[in-house]
Design a binder for these strands. Sequence first.
DNA 1: CCTTAACTGTGTCTGTCGGACGCTAATTAG
DNA 2: CTAATTAGCGTCCGACAGACACAGTTAAGG
Lengths: 246, 246
Amino acid sequence: MATPSALDLLWGAPQRPRRGPKPSLSLERIVTEAIALADAEGLASLSMQHLAERLGCAKMALYRYVPGKTELVALMVDAAIGDPPPPAEPAGPGEPAWPAVLREWATTIFGRYRAHPWSIEATTGARPTGPHEVAWLESALTALAGTGLTGAERLDAVVLLNGHVRSLVQVTAAGQEDLEGEVARQIGTALSAHADRYPQVVAAFADGPGPAGRDNALNFGIDRILDGLAVLIAERAAGPPPDRGR
Amino acid sequence: MATPSALDLLWGAPQRPRRGPKPSLSLERIVTEAIALADAEGLASLSMQHLAERLGCAKMALYRYVPGKTELVALMVDAAIGDPPPPAEPAGPGEPAWPAVLREWATTIFGRYRAHPWSIEATTGARPTGPHEVAWLESALTALAGTGLTGAERLDAVVLLNGHVRSLVQVTAAGQEDLEGEVARQIGTALSAHADRYPQVVAAFADGPGPAGRDNALNFGIDRILDGLAVLIAERAAGPPPDRGR
DNA sequence: CCTTAACTGTGTCTGTCGGACGCTAATTAG
DNA sequence: CTAATTAGCGTCCGACAGACACAGTTAAGG
């Protein structure tokens, strides 16, 4: 049998072969257990050997279901990301709907990524896209459909928002919402020994969280992005594209 | 000799030992060649064996200079990122300086990342921070020093901008500036077979690049972020923090 | 000068990894 | 019943990071 490609596994319907012994495993169970293993011990500990032991079979048996580890990880990522939530309600009666929807979208997908931190490191670089991922894209694009933005601009906006969420998942460790503390810990002792070379860094860390309490870094970025999008949408609504010189 | 830690290697001065044979290699040369190797063949092909062959020594000789591969990669990243450029000129005489400076900052660091694409995948997750990286942070924070933003807000703003740049480096392949084409290629054939399930995605791709030509995805994101920051800065300038309900 | 401590280079070994190949047994179409 | 097709898996391979011990080299201390 020609092993199915990653795209077939992600998008294709499970097809039962006609002859031969019945499989004792299923693709779904393999992916589920692999996700559980990666959640518990990290992506580095996810080896075919470990996974096979957990499943109670030999290592090479897995290759009857999955052509290689790369494809397995792609399946894990798409399964872990899950389905997008239903669109959120607008903030007020007269308010446009898209900011609230996109905010909800961003915080929800942030939670999904955070629940499976390995999914970030597993998705660096080009890779086949799964149906769940496209569903999230569809969901965000739907929120932006009413605005006057170009198709390419809508795509860019979603990529911008998604990139912010992903980069924050990446930098914050598993337990922390506190970005500044995380950065401070990373820079840490080395900075204190060279404080004179980096006065602005020292000043920024020394400065308090500000008068109005403080949103965390995730919400700060979401707010700025949504504000920036609102500016562009208002421009588009005001008149034909002014081609403002940058 | 106790092998120096990653932070010592990144921040410490090179100290010559008193006795023993002179080293035939140098940390600088090792890092330089490792970067060249990763540039040419990718991070996956960077093994201690390969690097030793390139340097004309045995594999284990490298461990006299670097405690492990992890630390080597950290050194590579910090060296590859280099020094930040001098601050850019403001756009006009009456204009505030920070948008132009941050725009220049973002496009320049984008170029650095793109020149060494492996630096993105090498920097996922927590890791020791090097002096060059802190210098870039210092540079961006200096640009934001004049604004009324809190220290934490300034940090969040830089993280936001840097995250956007990094996520775009990640998604665009080595040759492409064209994000939409890249995404389209990844989704590709699978989407066309399920076009009915994702009408907004299809619509966004079908729509043209818009009336005014089109900035690429990098500039789109930078523009939105800078616009969003401008809104916040204007709020801060207008009066004491209004604690606007989100 | 010589002794000796410290340091560099490296050959060898181990454990782990992803994956190729081919064998055997089970199941079903004809 | 027979043959085709499939699943499970034992065995092997090459590549990897790194531990460890040993030999050769250099400079400090007498």
